[in-house]
């Protein structure tokens, strides 16, 4: 009914956080010495999945007539019983969607950190042998 609203809301929040973190990282790395992927870049992956996924889901809701281009935009908002059902769906399915995407992103971040750590180790080894 409107489950995509929850990941879309998370996307707004993470986009703001990403912008702030990117600014901070830019100030800390003015000399351009750090070449590894920063946290702001990793947050971009989460933003991409949240915006992309909720965008395509919004299209699906338009397809099924659950979202309209005129006020109140959600057809379920016209009827109190439907509104209650919509809010329940947002709380269950919508939250689960946001959590799943975030968990998958966290997995990607862990894998990327491990790759970076192993690369640092091999750099140090190469430096020691030289």
């Amino acid at each position: 009914m409107a489950c995509f609203v929850v990941p879309a809301t998370e996307a707004i929040v993470t986009t703001v956080i990403q912008k702030v973190v990117a600014k901070k990282e830019k100030n800390e790395n003015k000399d351009g010495s750090q070449m590894k992927i920063g946290f702001a870049d990793k947050l971009k992956w989460l933003n991409g999945m949240l915006w992309g996924g909720s965008g395509l889901l919004a299209f699906e809701h338009v397809w099924h007539g659950e979202v309209t281009p005129f006020f109140p935009f959600l057809t379920a908002a016209n009827d109190p019983a439907d509104t209650a059902e919509m809010l329940h769906e947002m709380a269950t399915s919508g939250s689960a969607m946001a959590v799943l995407v975030t968990v998958v992103w966290a997995g990607l971040v862990i894998v990327s950190n491990k790759i970076t750590a192993s690369d640092n180790k091999s750099d140090k080894k190469a430096g020691a042998t030289a």
């Binding site: 990941p7 992956w45 991409g48 999945m49 949240l50 915006w51 992309g52 996924g53 909720s54 965008g55 395509l56 889901l57 969607m97 799943l100 995407v101 998958v104």
Partner: peptide, 8 residues
């Protein structure tokens, strides 16, 4: 991003 986000 779009396809994996929507798939999940």
């Amino acid at each position: 991003y779009m396809f994996w986000g929507a798939s999940l």
